[in-house]
Design a protein around this nucleic acid. Structure first.
Lengths: 199, 199
DNA sequence: ACCTGAACACCGTTCAAGT
DNA sequence: ACCTGAACACCGTTCAAGT
C-alpha cells in the first residue's frame, strides 16, 4: 500500500494550507471542515486527529495569516531605517495595503476566534508574535518622539496610539470592503490621508 | 379555531423582531432561521411565505438596525444646532457610542449582505435612508466650511471625508470588539480623540 | 392565502471499528 | 498511531399536501 495515500504524514499542514485556499475562494461564511478534508483526499473525520474542532483549524489558519501580516508590517522599518516618523506612516500604509490586497484576511484576523485570545493568557500554541503588538510598539516609539518635539503636556499616549490605529484600521476596512464610494485610486487616497497631505 | 394561533397575521414583523433579539443573544454566527421560526411558534418553513430565504430575513433585520443607527446620528444636529463643527464631532462620537453599546450590530451593518447593496442599484425594498449617507452628507457640509476657513488649495474633499469616516469607523470597531488594550473609559478616550484634545 | 411535514443535501461532531 | 463509516443532531431549502 502506498504510504503517502494512506498515511498522509503531513495532513496537519495540508489542512491549514487547503483551508486558507478555500477561505480565499469561498469566503469565511462558506468555509466547511468537510470540504477541506475532501480536498485533502481524506475522510471528513480525519481532521479531528489534528484539531480539536473546526475552530481550532480556523485558529491555526489565522496564526499563519497573522505571521504574513506581521512580516508585511516589518518591511516599513527597512524602507526608512533612519526616520521613525516615515516608518510609522509607511507601516500604516502597509497595514491598509495588506487588507486591500487580501480582503479575505479581514474576517480572519479581526473576527475569528483568535482575536479573542489576543489580549488573554490562554493564547493558542504557536501564537508567538502578533502584528498588532508590532504596530503598537512602533506607535509607542513614534509617540515618544512626538512628545519630545511637541513639548505638550496635553499629549496622551493612549489617545495618540488609538487615534493612529483607528485611522488605518478604518481605512483598511472601508476600502477593502469598498464601502466608501470613490472612483479614483483607493491606495493613493489612503497614502495621502496617512501622510496628512490633504488638509 | 383561534385565528391568532393559526393565522398569525403579523408573522413577518414577528420574525424580524425575534430575529433581532436572537442576533443580540446568540450572535450572527449562531443565527438560525429554524430557531427564529420556532420562537415565533411557527413551523420552520413558514418564514418562506414572507422571505425568499435566510438572507432576505437578515436584510430585513439589517434595515431595522440601519434606521436605529440613522436616528442616533441625527441627534447630533439637534444638540449643536448652530455649530456645524460640533455637529460633525458629536456625530462621530455617537457613531462610536452606538456600536460600543450595540456590538452585535457591527456584524449586521458592516458584514451582512445588505452592505453589498448600499452602493448598488438593486437596493432591497424598504431600504430608504442609510446612516452612511447621513454621515457623509454631514462631513460634506463640514468640509465646505473647512475649505473656506483654511483657504488651502491642497484641501481634498474625498480625502477629508474618508479620513473622518475611517477614524470613527476604526474607533467603533476596535473599541466595540475590545481589541485595543486600555483600562480606562473607552468612550471618554474616543471623545478625546474625535475632538482632537490629545495632541 | 397561509401553514405544515416529509424529504433532500448539506453541516459539525462522536465513536466503535478497521489498518 | 492514524484513518474510516455509520450515526446523531443540527442546518437551509423545496414541494406536495392540508386548512
Amino acid at each position: 500500500m502506498d504510504k503517502a495515500s494512506y498515511h498522509h504524514d503531513n495532513l496537519k499542514n495540508n489542512l491549514i494550507e487547503e483551508g486558507l485556499k478555500q477561505l480565499n475562494e469561498a469566503g469565511y461564511e462558506n468555509f466547511s471542515l468537510r470540504k477541506v478534508a475532501k480536498a485533502c483526499g481524506v475522510s471528513h473525520t480525519a481532521p479531528y486527529r489534528h484539531f480539536k474542532n473546526k475552530d481550532e483549524l480556523i485558529i491555526a489558519i489565522t496564526v499563519e495569516a497573522m505571521e504574513k501580516f506581521n512580516e508585511t508590517l516589518k518591511k516599513a522599518a527597512l524602507k526608512y531605517p533612519d526616520d521613525i516618523r516615515s516608518q510609522i506612516y509607511e507601516m500604516g500604509f502597509l497595514y491598509v495595503k495588506f487588507f486591500v490586497e487580501n480582503p479575505e484576511y479581514l474576517q480572519l484576523l479581526f473576527l475569528s476566534d483568535v482575536t479573542k485570545y489576543v489580549n488573554e493568557e490562554d493564547v493558542p500554541e504557536g501564537y508567538s508574535e502578533d502584528p498588532f503588538s508590532t504596530f503598537l510598539k512602533a506607535i509607542e516609539n513614534f509617540s515618544l518622539e512626538q512628545k519630545n518635539i511637541l513639548h505638550n503636556d496635553n499629549f496622551d499616549k493612549n489617545a495618540f496610539a488609538l487615534d493612529c490605529w483607528s485611522k488605518v484600521h478604518g481605512l483598511a476596512i472601508l476600502i477593502s470592503k469598498k464601502q466608501y464610494p470613490y472612483d479614483g485610486d483607493y491606495l493613493e487616497l489612503a497614502r495621502k490621508i496617512i501622510w496628512d497631505e490633504h488638509k
